[in-house]
Nucleic acid binder design. Structure first.
Lengths: 195, 195
DNA sequence: ATAATATGCGAATACATGTTCACATGAGGT
DNA sequence: ACCTCATGTGAACATGTATTCGCATATTAT
């Protein structure tokens, strides 16, 4: 087996772990499963991570920085508020459907209850995410694209709820669930709700 | 130890299991934990249930019939559509905050992936639930209480998403999270969205 | 080239978990 | 009162899981 630096191995292990969560859920995120997915021995995983808690934290960091950061980029663009919201909504649904491990991990009660520090970290990131979307909505109201009288923060939470329930129905239902089509319908109705 | 009939023991075991899930999550739903919570031996649990899968199914049935049925009762009442929606929303938030085991179980990826039959059953029940709420919204549109142009089904999903994200933020955050207050704010904004 | 160090792995360990079994005991029908 | 059967339990078992340890080997610096 070719040797690689810890930096590279850490990324491989995190990606393998996310793949396992996506396919079999957080419950199946065992060291053995990660090792098999990553194509290395179980003992080797301990060369690069202190233990399972350490791996949980690394997954949380990855999701927090790589994923949640995207919204900030879109928010900083020069398009109109409604367009920004649509882009964020679409790319979010797209990402979650391609990397099911991400929502599984974030919504896992196992993580919430046994990895409190990871949960707190994610809670803060999600809070920032809500703020970002609320800011776009506030701008939309000011520019007249979005109806007056709406509360930006609560409207942002409503939008996130749409994403969450879509992912949930996709996860719980059969594999043939058309998540993209479902999301489109919800978005169309959201336009009607806010304009 | 006093002996009781299987019928009554089954209920005790299910309630104990729901309590365990509410306090420590689905991951911690072990036979040992249920036995301790219910105050009986592990072996005795096997007197009344075939095994863990059987217990999962029983929990799913309980949640499906006892809980989801409430919405149908409210929907059948004689109040105005918006009032019905508010009652459903409030009682739902109230129930989930008092019995955290219910959302933990329903949203558990462990259940979704390893208990497919339970997941399918819940999916059908949730589908009925969506239909019920969509029916109320359709009536609201017809009576002029709710804005025209909205799609009942998608608006119903949006309402459910509000509930789901509220429970999620409550679960992931600190124990001091004010779920009732948060839900009230969301409801107030929902009124603005649909009317 | 060689020493030093980081990387890799099979095997062993300690513990948790689902399940079964042989045996005890209490409740209800006769 | 007694018999029968459902209910209850401690102990044992097989398997799964996280983690550690001694040893091998590739990479890097000198």
């Amino acid at each position: 087996m070719q040797k690689k630096s810890t930096r590279v191995r850490k990324e491989e292990i995190i990606q393998a772990a996310l793949a396992v969560v996506g396919e079999k859920g957080v419950r199946a995120l065992t060291i053995a499963a990660i090792a098999e997915q990553a194509g290395m021995s179980e003992a080797n995983i301990y060369r690069h991570f202190g233990g399972k808690d350490d791996i949980y934290a690394a997954i949380g960091n990855f999701i927090g920085s790589e994923v949640m950061g995207k919204a900030a980029t879109i928010a900083g663009g020069s398009r109109r508020p409604i367009e920004k919201l649509e882009t964020i909504f679409r790319s979010h649904i797209s990402l979650l459907s391609e990397q099911p491990g991400i929502p599984r991990f974030v919504f896992s009660d196992d993580v919430h209850l046994t990895q409190r520090n990871v949960a707190e970290f994610l809670a803060v990131r999600i809070g920032n995410y809500v703020d970002t979307i609320a800011g776009i909505i506030a701008a939309g109201i000011e520019e007249g694209e979005i109806r007056q009288g709406l509360v930006p923060r609560e409207t942002a939470l409503t939008l996130l709820g749409m994403i969450q329930i879509t992912v949930f129905r996709w996860t719980i239902g059969t594999a043939s669930f058309d998540i993209k089509g479902d999301a489109e319908k919800l978005w169309g109705n959201f336009i009607g709700l806010v304009s």
